[in-house]
Design a protein around this nucleic acid. Structure first.
Lengths: 363, 363
DNA sequence: CTGTTAGCGCATTCAA
DNA sequence: TTGAATGCGCTAACAG
């Protein structure tokens, strides 16, 4: 039934055929009040007949904004950020907004490229899922009046919206748990400390050790120097190698689950028993942390809550509702599994079935 | 040094200050020939001084196209698609193109929403990373003249560009390997067969069994009926439960690695030994398949090659270079690890170190 | 109730 | 070598 007058019909085409003005067509299609039923029906029918699809670019030019938002992550291969993308994308779509995903690999050049492009595209808002390496970007966004929300990091400028996690507490939870297991010599491994989350986790580790009156041997600390170490599993593998070449700790605390996977892999390969010889704790509670053998004790963060808060804040800023989220802090909790079991269960010589279980479903 | 005349200066602002016409500014900024050195310098300096950032929307309206492409995936939580996003995003960025990531959960409504929005945004092209459930979408894109490339699926219309994997051969590799290990009773589990890749894997399984003269017991086949089964690990877990309630196969072939992770988890929980009691083979060779214990024997596909071919094809279609990729087929290979080891190594009673190793680096 | 008109910011043709 | 003028497709204020 489609008469293919033009491949990409515009309001003008509809207007000509319906013998009304282009403005009238606009009114009809935008459901503006004050159009007679007769004209409305005729226009809608012709629009449908022509297979009319509005040109969002023209509309955006007129409105001086677009209906898209950006999601900036450092690594689309990391399931921690996948989860954020998953939540944020869903919420924005439900708002009728399109979402860009920007993958930066923590590279300041790439970060800037995306920010500049976002400004050029007159993007409605941005959710930044980590602390940008290139801090100039925040200023640029401010200058151009583009609202943004930072997840899991603080910006220098207090008036920006940030939702952060209590990473120091997370490390305390981990270390205290190891100590409960009677472990006193604990190694730490992390990727380079390029954002607040990583710095606080490290800081929390040192503070917790101090609190317990334990000394930290610098040889038992492996922190990668390279920003480009994006293969976190391999990093954990190498870190464990390095650490074992200098000593034999009873516990290893990894700054992220993926690093912990590498640690476990290395220990498995060396036939070092987990947790009997060395206990391992990770951070993030990614979906696979319950699947790996032994399943990983780890720190879980309320990611969904963070994303929800972040998205709601951004939407309200976009709509000028004036709602701001100033440095809201969310609390982590520890998920005890096989790699550093519950002391009571463990002493009984067996693991409870629940400790083997799945992580809560992601959706 | 910035004189903040306007928050978002336009060419008009620059023109006024430089006392030239807006057209001249456009010439300068686009490096058109035929502008005096003097004017060029003055304009550039003022543009810089004002912090001018071009308005991509206006340019796109004029050009009737945009500098963005879409990447459509069914599930951002799946590392198989993460890898594709990773490659494609990198290549498009290097082309100076922005990329949308669209997450559909295989939902035909969401697929359509993204396609319609892409048309509205006058997107330059789309890379579709799986077979769309909603086949009407392909027609819509054709109608509106938007170039697209389909990865890992065929479209009904032969003139569309498709890059496909030889999934039938992949299943043959898996089954033949199990048979080499002396295994004759093989179970199969898969998510719902909503695309060609899954259907061919299943078909390949049956053909390979037939070729070997083995009968397939329908009770040893678990294929989820629900499209919404997006938690693949849990699916594998449940599937194994179901299968074991009806029999005890010597081998389980899973349609994807994530399903295989669930299978392994279940077997581990039941203290069923892998591979001594049951061998397991997955499909996709996701990064974690080498990390899990036992590490997973799986079918590896040339994802990077596929993405590269797909992107190059799309770029050439966008630039009207007329290059088409008609049903190019790429070949898989088997990666032998612990869950279904090499028969020779295995008979010697031990695994070679290499079988424990990492998957090749992703980057 | 409907039409006229005036831009949004830019690229580009035609004149000068 | 530069400027004036036009239009991409749409929204919205204003007029009738």
């Amino acid at each position: 039934m489609k008469s293919n007058i033009s491949k990409n019909p515009t309001m003008k085409d509809i207007a000509r055929i319906a013998r009304v003005s282009q403005a009238t067509v606009s009114y009809v299609l935008n459901n503006s009040a004050g159009i007679s039923q007769k004209v409305r029906e005729r226009v809608l029918e012709i629009a449908d007949d022509l297979g009319y699809i509005p040109n969002a670019i023209a509309r955006n030019l007129k409105n001086k904004t677009s209906n898209t938002i950006g999601i900036i992550v450092p690594d689309v291969m990391n399931s921690y950020y996948n989860e954020m993308i998953n939540y944020v994308e869903k919420m924005t779509r439900e708002q009728g907004l399109f979402s860009f995903v920007c993958n930066t690999m923590h590279d300041p050049k790439i970060e800037e490229w995306y920010i500049v492009n976002s400004i050029q595209q007159k993007i409605a808002g941005i959710i930044i899922c980590y602390g940008l390496t290139n801090r100039e970007c925040y200023k640029k966004l401010d200058q151009h009046g583009i609202p943004f929300v930072i997840l899991d990091d603080l910006s220098e400028d207090e008036k920006n919206s940030c939702i952060i996690m209590n990473n120091i507490k997370g490390s305390f939870l981990a270390i205290r748990h190891l100590i409960k297991l009677g472990i006193r010599d604990i190694a730490y491994c992390s990727q380079a400390l390029y954002n607040i989350a990583l710095r606080e986790r490290y800081k929390g580790f040192r503070l917790a050790m101090e609190e317990a009156g334990l000394s930290v041997s610098e040889e038992m600390i492996y922190i990668s120097k390279e920003h480009k170490d994006y293969d976190k599993i391999r990093l954990g593998y190498t870190a464990t190698e390095k650490i074992l070449s200098k000593g034999f700790p009873s516990g290893i605390f990894a700054a992220t689950d993926h690093i912990a996977f590498g640690v476990i892999k290395k220990l498995n390969d060396l036939n070092i028993r987990i947790p009997e010889d060395i206990s391992v704790i990770g951070y993030d509670d990614v979906p696979l942390s319950g699947i790996i053998s032994p399943s990983l004790t780890t720190i879980s963060q309320p990611i969904k809550k963070m994303c929800k808060l972040g998205a709601v804040t951004l939407f309200s800023e976009i709509n000028n509702e004036g709602y701001k989220a100033n440095n809201i802090m969310l609390e982590p909790k520890i998920i005890i599994r096989e790699s550093a079991p519950d002391p009571l269960t463990y002493q009984k010589g067996g693991f409870q079935e629940k400790n083997k279980g799945f992580r809560k479903s992601v959706i």
